[in-house]
Design a protein around this nucleic acid. Structure first.
Lengths: 155, 155
DNA sequence: CGCTTTTAAGTTGAGCACAACACAATCGTG
DNA sequence: CACGATTGTGTTGTGCTCAACTTAAAAGCG
């Protein structure tokens, strides 16, 4: 609890570096994904669907930590691109099933070079990669549990 | 150069964790800054100005890695809030000097609790904080130099 | 000095992120 | 079964982010 002013500053620097790194990465993905005609968040949706199609909007939201306010228009754009379809589930009319189209499935082949380019740009060894990922996830988890409104929802 | 599929996956996970952590942090700042009526990017501008008051738009852009397309409307909103002023420099009419108003300066007092709350939420020791910050900055730097368009500009 | 080039900010348009709200389908409980 | 609560998705409004373009001022150069 006895935080030096210096530690407060370090925390701010960490926050900014995460904010800045995230934007830089999105920029790199922008270049790499331009040939495919999709954005980074759209690519994340495709990654999820390449693992398992169909997924519901909620399932996608849970994986990407995005709500329907973000996903609905994003999925609509991907549908317009002909990469996926959206259909109400038979068993529950509230649920929308998001499924890859043939074209969406095929796009995977064009995306194979993306991870390599990212890997090269980041240029970290396996061990460092794991360490950094775990630390960042740890911070994110702690921050998420610290957000008051999230906790207020008595789930 | 011989990357296993597993390493490709790790890199993707790192990218996503950075993207996700950044958004989680912005969410926490949203709660903390709500009483002040500013957003996280706006808060970053104020932090810079609390260090040194007038700053040009370019100087702010260099510090925050944001271009005028983002800063211009953001600064306009802060001006509308009465927190800062924008005036063309005498010596060079192209340059806009962004300066804190009295109210903008005073807001610093209300913001003192923010860094403590962030520090508590993140809950890392000094050494880990430094290590993580440096690693993340390192990744961001490497990614930035890997973006083709940035390099293309023969500055 | 004129004229081209460069530079600083601003504008526009597309997409993302999220809060707040809307609405219909389903669930739960009496 | 009825009816209030919950759930899944969508809509609206505000703000951020960036690419591409515009405009005006300044700098550089023959």
């Amino acid at each position: 609890m006895t935080d030096t002013p210096d530690n407060l500053r370090l925390n701010q620097q960490l926050c900014f570096s995460l904010y800045s790194a995230s934007r830089a990465l999105t920029g790199l993905y922008r270049e790499l994904l331009a040939p495919l005609g999709v954005t980074y968040p759209q690519y994340l949706v495709l990654l999820a669907l390449w693992e398992k199609s169909p997924l519901t909007v909620s399932e996608l939201g849970a994986q990407l930590q995005l709500d329907s306010g973000t996903l609905s228009p994003l999925l609509k754009r991907l549908e317009l691109l002909g990469l996926l379809s959206r259909n109400r589930a038979d068993h529950d009319e509230r649920v929308v099933l998001v499924a890859l189209t043939e074209r969406g499935t095929a796009l995977r082949a064009e995306a194979v070079t993306v991870p390599d380019a990212i890997t090269e740009a980041i240029g970290l060894e396996r061990a460092q990669l794991i360490g950094l990922r775990d630390q960042v996830e740890d911070v994110a988890d702690r921050v998420r549990t610290a957000i008051p409104t999230e906790n207020a929802k008595t789930r």
